[in-house]
Design a protein around this nucleic acid. Sequence first.
DNA 1: ATAAAACTTAAAGCATACTCTAAGTCAAGG
DNA 2: CCTTGACTTAGAGTATGCTTTAAGTTTTAT
Lengths: 145, 145
Amino acid sequence: MNTYSIGDVAKLMGVTTYTLRYYEKEGLLPNIRKNSAGLRRFSEQDLAWLNILECLKSTGLPLKEIKHYLELSKDGDKTVKERMEIFLTQKKRLERQIQALKDNMEKINFKIKYYEAAIQDGEKNVLSKHRDLEAERKRLFEPKK
Amino acid sequence: MNTYSIGDVAKLMGVTTYTLRYYEKEGLLPNIRKNSAGLRRFSEQDLAWLNILECLKSTGLPLKEIKHYLELSKDGDKTVKERMEIFLTQKKRLERQIQALKDNMEKINFKIKYYEAAIQDGEKNVLSKHRDLEAERKRLFEPKK
DNA sequence: ATAAAACTTAAAGCATACTCTAAGTCAAGG
DNA sequence: CCTTGACTTAGAGTATGCTTTAAGTTTTAT
């Protein structure tokens, strides 16, 4: 089976070697093998774990809780339910995140439309801070429907 | 027009009063009025701005760049294009974020399915760390199609 | 009238997640 | 042989975004 140096893994995962060593130091990368010269050799399973780690991290699970998940994994079958719960919780979190991003997309689209219209108008000082915020104020406090 | 105390605003925005004062100190809340006793009174426009601030922040724009946007706003018409660019950039970022979250949703669903199947099986030690990661390794390195 | 809650300031402290430094080892190319 | 570059360790330093403290003032409810 292929193995990978820390530099290879850094490139593959889009992180720095510092980050990978930091993760190992924090117990987030268990059992990374080292060759006779003491250099780390990452297995494909290690990369698979990094992939899950990245997924959990980028959906907002703190490193501390990722470590907790890892400890559950070590304990085998009896922690299955708790481990599945973690993923179910992340799934819910993810759904909220996607909705929040969509809401933000609407706000950003409102802003872009406002700027486009203002540029079209060519009106002077339409875009002073006051006018700009007044449009937002109305959007929030005087919604049309 | 209604005004709001710092505590009111904190509740409305779901942040602490510490955070609001911190934002003001950092120049992210310009021109907050104070009453004769020196207490902050937030206007609806201030809330409108906080709403935009929250939108930019939660889509990953650092506070430093949010401050920059604010400074552009103060300079009026001549910064319109740059300001619109900021929102267009955030829109692109947001599209990537939504896609990334959807990708993560797939990974999480894979995990959940794996755990469900393993629980059904009732097989002992199916869920040891090794087996668990082996499934991930195959997903990554031996995709079916 | 007075006690509790909410506010004021300036400045220090903290959590998270890296990021870098120092001093040294090791393997490969010219 | 020797330099270059990737690696090793332990530990210090940094960036971001808050969060709290301390000491005092103001507002609000009883």
